[in-house]
Design a binder for these strands. Sequence first.
DNA 1: TGTACATCAGTGAACGCGCGTTCACTGATGTAC
DNA 2: TGTACATCAGTGAACGCGCGTTCACTGATGTAC
Lengths: 234, 234
Amino acid sequence: MPARTARERARAELTREIKDEARRQLALTGADGLSLRAVARELGMVSSALYRYFPSRDELLTALILDAYSALADAAEAADDPAAPPRARMRAVCAAIRGWARAHQHEYALLYGSPVPGYQAPRDTVAPAIRVPLVLLAVVRAAWTDGAAPEPPRADAISPQLADQLQAVAEQYAPGLPEPVLARALLAWAQVFGLVSFELFGQFAGSVEPADGFMAFAVEQVCDLVGLPPGPEG
Amino acid sequence: MPARTARERARAELTREIKDEARRQLALTGADGLSLRAVARELGMVSSALYRYFPSRDELLTALILDAYSALADAAEAADDPAAPPRARMRAVCAAIRGWARAHQHEYALLYGSPVPGYQAPRDTVAPAIRVPLVLLAVVRAAWTDGAAPEPPRADAISPQLADQLQAVAEQYAPGLPEPVLARALLAWAQVFGLVSFELFGQFAGSVEPADGFMAFAVEQVCDLVGLPPGPEG
DNA sequence: TGTACATCAGTGAACGCGCGTTCACTGATGTAC
DNA sequence: TGTACATCAGTGAACGCGCGTTCACTGATGTAC
């Protein structure tokens, strides 16, 4: 085993500190306010020193995005107890997603808000990004395997285009899952994040804010959509 | 009637031209890239001249936001034919919202994307912002008046907190509408915009993109959610 | 209808700021013999 | 175990940039008599 030199340890630690400080600034100023110089200043370094760690501002942003996707996915996965009944699982996963989003608003915005103009997310973001929908999919699939099935959509609701797309997705991530179930799972995914975004971005101001009650209601509807059997308090 | 002087006409026209140019730049660079200097440059003026029209960058942004909310609401209202059956109305309104959003991506992001850091939307944005949900609400209400009712949610799905909020909203915007129906209408609103945001912000890349088919599917599910009777192709 | 004054639009220069990135450098840490 | 050299982290100065906003000004448009 190669001994970790002091240099290596120092480098790993400073890399982490840079990202931590960048996250802190993100929380204050948002993505476009993130400045290498400010990060360096806060760490007591000279701005050029950061270039030993990240070759450019965009690379730092990418690192933050990757970390955020992973952290969110970790939270979702940790909240999911495969032994629990599907509806309880869905509730727990949704609560974890919402909780993480509220605790890391600007990181969430980095992932699910308006794209940062001029910044092109690299391919590596795809893998961590799909972990969350895969958790939701696992819950839906478990319920389906157990015999719970959502009402099939009207025959015409799934267009040929959508059918093709669903087939491709199913092949890779959910072999054997019927298209209508998969379609609803995808819809549930979009709905959950749509709700969280609405809450975080302030669209509920003046109506159902604070949104705890509404969110709970919404999650039950999402569960119904994907055909999870009624839960304990149903 | 006070004659409009040449000055007044010129002022109105230049105000419009400034906003048009600002919108053009928004489309290229996003909200944070919007710069008074660049707008002035493009219009062949000196940057300080803009201050005769907008007292600050933020005021210009606010004007753009107000215009965008209004334009989107106009599109939604224009697409709604109150004489049509509810499901057809919902389809048309959703299509109009999605169409406007796709045609004005950055303006849409200004309204429904991550909040611009440091920018606080003034109160005046509230009135134009609620016009769109009111259109959706009108469709749901019409269906409900006609006797279509969504399945009531399980008794416990509406928490006391949510019930209070719904009552307040109903009082102001939908007197007489039962809480469960209103709750579902609000949910539909959040879902529609969640879907549009997901599409525009690129979350469907690699799965159901292009999203036409999925959107059509999703809209049908939303119609089901709020209890609209099956449409012609059902 | 014509003149004197007030209002307003647009100019050009300037202030002060912060940014990302490059580069030649010093000095400390690691490696090979 | 000790020395000679290579690697790397961090420094400090600089480049070139664009930004929002202010201010004293000129000249055109409008108004009151």
